[in-house]
């Protein structure tokens, strides 16, 4: 389901990313009314985002390095049959991925290979974190997961290699920030992402942190364009973060099943309250 829903976005992001590749693709992007394109429709010279883009690339690469490192610890635990250790390493390792998810989603099959949930893909193709999650929590064993573990680490390393090639631009950053929060809205806040481990709040927090990083980098430019909007977004990040903090437990977060219905609703409403103004951050891109 998830992939059916996000596919258009991925295609869109991909077309933006590679919009510099040829005239033909450029023209196609321009014909799609909803496509946030930075070319052709501009009337004022766009702001220079070279520094911002470099800052974000550095962040994405950093996260990706850590992702590979922590994933390796996790897959090693799985392969050596250390069930409890694997369970402990699962959610923290995923956090690095969740922070840069829109970037990964732009890389074709990598996202489903790493992050598909049951029913997202054909059963025969199901692999990655959630495949192993099911074994660890539902079957309570690491047995039979060695192959999936090896594949997962390989996919993570491939992501790290490919991330260097992504043509990041300000538009990807802006849409990516909203996309991260939409991820939370559609699966994390509902407890559907981590069906077996119930570690949804780790993903929730990581998605929000990823969005905040983008906001932080683009903040000076946004303050120039619309100071009220910049202030509003900042305040709403604070409100949401404070609320998330109340669910902290040790180095991580409480089990999703511990949340009461009204607590879930409040988290969701605060997320919506943030995502709405954040979706207007595109102002910095010009018309």
């Amino acid at each position: 389901m998830k992939y059916k829903v996000i596919l258009p976005t991925s295609v869109l992001v991909a077309s933006l990313l590679f919009s510099g590749c040829g005239q033909k693709e450029n023209a196609e992007a321009g014909q799609t009314p909803a496509a946030p394109t930075t070319t052709e429709t501009s009337t004022t010279p766009p702001a220079d985002f070279t520094v911002a883009v470099e800052q974000y690339r550095t962040f994405a690469v950093e996260q990706c390095d850590l992702f590979v490192k922590e994933t390796e610890k996790f897959t090693n635990a799985v392969k050596s049959g250390k069930l409890e250790e694997a369970k402990k390493l699962y959610a923290p390792a995923r956090s690095y991925y969740e922070r840069i998810e829109p970037v990964a989603e732009a890389l074709g099959d990598l996202d489903p290979n790493i992050d598909a949930r049951v029913n997202d893909v054909d059963a025969a193709d199901w692999r990655g974190f959630h495949r192993i999650e099911k074994a660890l929590w539902e079957d309570n064993t690491t047995a039979g997961q060695e192959g999936y573990a090896d594949q997962l680490l390989k996919d993570a390393q491939l992501l790290r290699a490919k991330i260097e090639t992504i043509d990041i631009d300000a538009s990807l950053m802006v849409t990516g920030a909203v996309e991260l929060l939409n991820e939370v809205s559609s699966s994390k806040v509902t407890g559907e992402e981590e069906l077996y481990s119930h570690t949804d709040l780790y993903d929730f927090a990581a998605n929000v942190e990823g969005a905040y990083k983008i906001f932080e980098i683009l903040k000076p430019e946004l303050a120039k364009k619309d100071a009220d909007l910049e202030k509003e977004i900042g305040e709403r990040f604070d409100i949401l973060q404070k609320e998330l903090d109340t669910y902290k437990k040790g180095d991580g977060y409480v089990d999703y099943t511990e949340l009461k219905d009204d607590e879930v609703r409040k988290l969701s409403q605060n997320l919506d309250a943030l995502a709405e103004p954040l979706s207007n951050m595109g102002k910095i891109l010009g018309v």
Binding site: P33, T41, S279, K283, V287
Partner: peptide, 8 residues
């Protein structure tokens, strides 16, 4: 209504 394609 704005015609800014970068905004919802």
């Amino acid at each position: 209504e704005s015609s800014n394609h970068n905004l919802p």
